[in-house]
Design a protein around this nucleic acid. Structure first.
Lengths: 224, 224
DNA sequence: AGTCGCATTAATCACTCGATTGATTTATTC
DNA sequence: GAATAAATCAATCGAGTGATTAATGCGACT
């Protein structure tokens, strides 16, 4: 079926090594010799397999993305906007989304170095996309945006499309910024183990997001 | 008074040039010859004034920060937590803070290249602080945190310190992430002039933040 | 005039960069 | 088992890196 071996060997070893090194020291801060050495091969293989350093970087990003589609694809799709249980489903879907996304963001903190590198690379790329791979990035992001927007649409049918988009950006931003600024937050708190408890973090983000979105269910005492 | 000229000339020219180049291509992607050339001077001046490239980078960051203290210092300080108008003042103070911070984040988008570079550099530094200058960074951030926390404390006296901190991080994160991901957002929307209207953006962030924080004043219909 | 000190310069140092080459090893096919 | 192709390697290329040096320009003070 699939072209089985065909020297996928040194190629994937190079990609894995590249992910780690690029994440740790950036594109310009990393030499191809360094990458090749960690991959137990020669720097010439970078040109052989990827047509140079830039090609290796793109390929590394692509490999990263193809391993990281989990949180959205696992979530159940929503019933039609008009259906009876739609609102409740959307509410639950949004909470699941936040939990899944945040869990994925955080569980790779310090445990699996490749997962951790993936987040760093993705964050860097989101903030300053390397032109050669920006198309790759937005293609990878689109399903997230779609899923999130479809939830919000059900929960706030009164909002226009611009406003829904802004809501989605904000909810997404809460989580991404939290993850990105973990280093600074720990410095600011003087506590290297800052988040302490992931469950609290998730609950905070769900509460803040739902209230921020303006769904009545999230208000502290709607009937008093 | 101040030691007037004394060759502040090439020194400041180097710093300004460094801000631009470091922001555009990163620390590793920028050569000192390149910086010096733009500053109409010689690369040897980097060693002469700043003891090398790393020193120039730190000095550039420091210069950046000293020009960027405006939004917090302009804001009025709050009355004591127990005082009569304290709650109203804190509410107003938080809104002013969001407006000031967001305005500063956005007005430098594409207009003054140095201001724009400042944001990029600061974002990069916040996400992956260069060890030599991380102390500089958190020192610059602390007054923001302090001001924000003092507002939140009045508005949500029921929360513990951890929770207040999380609220502050979230409100801050809304704005920072929005600014950082402007490039991607424009790509996602296919609209290079995405935000269109700054006033709307500010209003959205104020609304989302106040609701997210959970202040009753921000709920859509508290008495119905 | 002399000279001291700071600022500036061109030239150079040792080194690393990404890319390429040509030879060599390994796998595949007839 | 010879022939062909794919994969890998050590060695090298020119360009560019940050840092250093020695020489020079220039104003102030004596």
């Amino acid at each position: 079926m699939t072209p089985p071996a065909l020297s996928q060997d040194s190629r994937t070893r190079l990609i894995d090594s590249a992910i780690l090194h690029f994440a740790a020291k950036g594109f310009d801060g990393t030499g191809i010799r360094e990458i090749a050495k960690s991959a137990n091969t020669n720097s010439a293989m970078v040109a052989y397999h990827f047509c140079g350093k830039e090609g290796l970087y793109s390929e590394a990003l692509k490999a990263l993305f193809s391993r990281k589609v989990s949180p959205v694809s696992q979530l159940a799709s929503l019933p039609a906007p008009g259906a009876p249980g739609a609102r409740q489903a959307a509410l639950q879907g949004l909470q699941d989304y936040i939990r899944a996304f945040l869990t994925e963001l955080m569980t790779c903190d310090g445990q699996d170095p490749v997962d951790e590198a993936a987040m760093i690379l993705m964050a860097r790329e989101m903030q300053a996309p390397r032109p050669a791979s920006s198309a790759l990035l937005i293609e990878h992001l689109r399903p997230y945006v779609t899923h999130l927007t479809s939830c919000l649409q059900v929960l706030r049918p009164d909002l226009k499309e611009d406003q829904l988009f802004a809501m989605g950006v904000s909810i997404q931003g809460l989580m991404i910024h939290f993850r990105n600024s973990l280093g600074i937050l720990r410095l600011l708190r003087g506590n290297p183990a800052y988040p302490e408890d992931l469950a609290n973090v998730i609950q905070h983000h769900i509460d803040f997001s739902l209230r921020g979105l303006g769904v009545p269910e999230a208000f502290p005492s709607p009937r008093n």
